[in-house]
Amino acid sequence: MSDIRLHPESLPATNEPLRIAVRRMRWFKSAFLRYVQASSTELGCTFEVDETKLAAAFVRWLESIERQKPTDKTQRRAFFEFAAALMLRELTSDMPLKVSGTPAKAKADSAAAFWPEGYCCTMFCLSVHAAAMAQEFKTDTEIDHAADDLRQWWSFKENAVTDASFSAGFLQLLLGREPNWVFPDVFRARLSKELE
């Protein structure tokens, strides 16, 4: 298990279940901006947010979860996890963050120092996922030790540039799953059924 700490507490409060709130632009944007601010403080750098790109990523994410949402209720929990992977795919396909300066408070050999934007987006997705899982299923989210391996992040950055679907596989890896690397952004259960 990784020592990386998530910050679900930095997400804004809502009267709605998180699974509903996260699909509202106003909550998603507020959550993202707050998370970026918290990351800036933690890492000692400044992020510039492109709100137009952020909104476009949100809309693409909505479309992709609508398209892939399983009708089988038993797959609901698995799809929660997958939705977070799709969110990371959309954020990395047209990155809404740009860092200025180097993250002075991050260790030189850490993922945060290596790719601050990718690190921040990944931690945001994992934090939203962790908060939603705790609320819906009363479970704690553990981050796989792969998150501490800089080679994984190097691979993530290299591959995500040419194929954003790789990001979806990377997030599943951090959640301790073995992704389907051929189709990392296709909901695995559905794919399995289609291949039967």
């Binding site: 509202r24 106003r26 944007k29 709100e51 949100f58």
Partner: peptide, 17 residues
């Protein structure tokens, strides 16, 4: 209380599409 944030969100969604 959410009026402003909702208008901002509606604008963002309209821009995205």
């Amino acid at each position: 209380a959410e009026n402003e944030a909702a208008l901002d969100a509606a604008t963002d969604l309209a821009v995205a599409l």
